[in-house]
Design a protein around this nucleic acid. Sequence first.
DNA 1: GCCGTACATTACCTTTAGGTTATGTATCTG
DNA 2: CAGATACATAACCTAAAGGTAATGTACGGC
Lengths: 118, 118
Amino acid sequence: MQSSERLNLTFAALADPTRRAILARLATGEATVTELAVPFEMSQPAISKHLKVLERAGLISMDVDAQRRPRRLETKGLKEAVDWIERYREIFEQNYQRLDALLGELQAKPSRRKRTHK
Amino acid sequence: MQSSERLNLTFAALADPTRRAILARLATGEATVTELAVPFEMSQPAISKHLKVLERAGLISMDVDAQRRPRRLETKGLKEAVDWIERYREIFEQNYQRLDALLGELQAKPSRRKRTHK
DNA sequence: GCCGTACATTACCTTTAGGTTATGTATCTG
DNA sequence: CAGATACATAACCTAAAGGTAATGTACGGC
């Protein structure tokens, strides 16, 4: 898979609060589908779908234990997302400092340029 | 807005490759809508939509310069996403080490538990 | 003042996401 | 071996995402 494609899957997976909650739960240790479903007002198939999304993104993996299918966290998928976001974080922060400087300048010597921040 | 809601918007915004490319472009400095649209085989309204998504997520902001609407990066939205992901990164990595240990143990003393990694 | 530029906005379409209920399939248990 | 348990899978629905073409609007330049 392309790096860009994996980033799509990872960020999309993280965009859902149910899935983030599942990851938070799995951070405390592995859990079965039934266990994961308990906190949510949602059917079991819905949870299974979320788990499939997380698995495709490489954020979790599955064990086989009799009729149980416990899930656990996986670092693979997250690594790349972290890398991407970290890479831009610096630039974002540099940019922020530049903006601060600019705003200071504008306050000292106002022009017709307006800033919308809605 | 709730923190969770902002995370939804931010991660969803980052999940699209066009939007990540726009952020990458803006990391080199502010740019107008027309300039941002050039690299993409996509209509201008489509780019405007993407910009609106990025703005709602707090990842960019807008200036007003005559009929131009240059965009620039904004740190606000990203900060929280970074925080979230960083917080879990540690746990993810701890978990990975625990997994390593477990796998070592399984190799030494195999059980009926299988691992699927598809 | 009129035209071109640089957008935003609207109406619309198609695909995908997230949920449901119903059902299928292993596997343990009495 | 007959449930019960723990899931996955299928069929379906609705809403939202991502795209389009057409149009509206504000501004600068000739």
